[in-house]
Amino acid sequence: MTLSVVMKNKKEKFADPPNFTEKKEYRPADVTEKGLVFVGHEISEDRTVMNQFLHYDQLYTIRHGWNSRFFIGLLEGKIMGTRCPKCGDSWVPVRTHCWNLDCNLQKTEWVEMPLTAQVHTWTIAGWSGRSSLKRLPIILVYANIGTSKVAMANELHGMNPWDVEFGMPLKIVFKPKEQRVGAVTDFHFEPVDFWKPTPMNPEKQRIKDLVMPVYEWVKTLK
């Protein structure tokens, strides 16, 4: 048996590279890349312990690859999901291959989801990661979008935190087009127009008591 090896011209690529024609930069003025820089140190009075301050700033390229249509969809104000042509399961967040082992990694197809969802579970955050502190308190819900078999996390706006309920119907609201960046923060959930909160009850009051100091604390943040 002879083994045939296809030699390619040095400049020829094995896959066609994407031609990136739309490029946007929205880098905040205070974001810089310096790489690794020592920016200070401290030494204890008895000179036995030293701490050093290292700053590390790096630009990452998140290559969305086969998931790209979801993120491009966000820029266009659409929620793109995927669906398995074999078993019919569908997802947002998307899967590019079916999760059902019987479908044996069947490639999925893209489907546009309706801009409606339903709360599966919820929480009210009074503390968060550094980049989210000033948005507190945050109602974070996991909600099923359209026919999706999985629940997706995002913030719920437009209501008092203590009024959130399991199973409540939601609509998806996008930021104005010029503010979108192709990330999940381009949209949030809001209650559907016909939804009305139920009257105050002991649990709601308990949540309100826990949440009110958070509003005050956020005001103290620089």
Binding site: P93, T121, G129, L140, V141, M152
Partner: peptide
Amino acid sequence: SDIRYELMVGGIYPIYYAAMANK
């Protein structure tokens, strides 16, 4: 967590755990 979907919407682990525990 899956940073493409969860981190930037205010998600940190205590929040994910709270959403699970609440239900």
